[in-house]
Nucleic acid binder design. Structure first.
Lengths: 212, 212
DNA sequence: CTCCGTTTCGTACAATGTACGACGACATTT
DNA sequence: AAATGTCGTCGTACATTGTACGAAACGGAG
């Protein structure tokens, strides 16, 4: 695995392996260097700072966002990509947080390119395409973020205590009695909502153009 | 500011003040303790771990999500809340990342309660309400996350280099020539899309119910 | 051999979270 | 009054982290 020379990519891969195997928190410079059988400070020849390493990890992950094949229907195509995206980021929740300090890399660009490709046959404006894609990524990332948030350790006692105070009548009504109102696959619903609204905008514009 | 006894809330407030004034990175136990004129380890009497402090900060922030007054129209009401949410999280981007390790607190519950209140006059099922609210928060949080991501320091040279390789024809087409395809207020568009799709679902169900 | 760029890495340091246990203040019991 | 206990405070110590600095090893060109 570490035969030829070092490189930023190989370092990122090693770090990624550690994150998967031992958790993101155990990704330290020393640990990565150890895994690569290299002095700690050697890493700093390829990477200016740890933040840069993490950015590289993020971008490495994003390689998995691009799908090998795309359905012709743009809705189906974007759905495929969105499902992949969700999958990737729910398996690596730390990548969401890291995004904030990681500028877009090559694989993020590949992702965008593929999304644009999926929309190439539609009659959308460049701006319309970017709007739709931004909306979808907003939704997908947000979904992954919230879905991987504090769920493991909700303070059930705290919640019960608060519900008992009567300050949350509507919450208590639907939570206290019966089942948790979990929604089956709101993910698809969200995507569909964005699709149809974008479609409406597109044909709206087309009609206006035709009218001139 | 620190007259009476200490409390988890007062500690969270102090930490929040530091985060606002000096950046989230400078929120250390020692720094917070110093601001409160207290020994560092004193904090640990009120807070089991730093993660818990951050969770408290997150929840303190969420107090600002609840609006003082709500329009009667549920669409307008949810829009008001969503705008507040966006505002809060774009002013405190670290809170998004912290969400992942912060279980929902009292103010998160207040937020949910208010959202449910906004939907109380609609004919929606409990499940429909929760679906819509989850979708909206997904979108809003995702929007804030991506909007506060790596933008400050895009490696413009890296991007140009890559675009020049010709591997990104569609990206190059819309980015290289002319203006950056920034979309004006996709935020509203996203909200509207989710609103109308939820409306359609609601009246769909109502019709089906009536038919029986 | 000398020289110089590239690549490797050992040492050292400052900062962090927090485990541990001591210390005082105050209330309650004897 | 004395003893006991709970509550709150905090100093010290330690392991772990990112990384600045500069020294070595290496390899090709002259």
């Amino acid at each position: 695995m570490s035969s030829t020379r070092l490189s930023r990519e190989k370092i990122a891969a090693a770090a990624l392996a550690i994150a998967d195997a031992e958790g993101f928190a155990s990704v330290s410079m020393r640990r990565v260097a150890q895994k690569l059988r290299v002095g700690t400070m050697t890493l700093y020849y390829y990477v200016k700072t740890k933040a840069e390493l993490i950015a590289a990890m993020d971008d490495a992950l994003m390689a998995d966002l691009v799908a090998p094949f795309l359905p012709k229907d743009w809705r189906k195509a974007l759905t495929v990509i969105a499902l992949r995206t969700r999958e990737v980021f729910m398996r690596h929740p730390w990548a969401l947080a890291s995004l904030q300090s990681a500028p877009p890399g090559v694989n993020a660009m590949r992702h965008m390119e593929q999304c644009l490709q999926a929309l190439s046959e539609t009659g959308m404006t460049a701006r319309q395409k970017f709007t739709l894609l931004a909306l979808i990524d907003d939704f997908v990332f947000g979904y992954a973020l919230r879905e991987t948030a504090g769920d493991p350790d909700v303070d059930i006692d705290l919640v019960r205590k608060q519900l008992a105070t009567g300050v949350f009548p509507r919450l208590a009504e639907t939570f206290g009695e019966g089942r948790v109102p979990a929604t089956p696959d709101r993910f698809r619903l969200g995507l569909e909502a964005l699709f149809t609204s974008a479609t409406k905008r597109t044909i709206g514009r087309a009609a206006r153009t035709r009218a001139n």
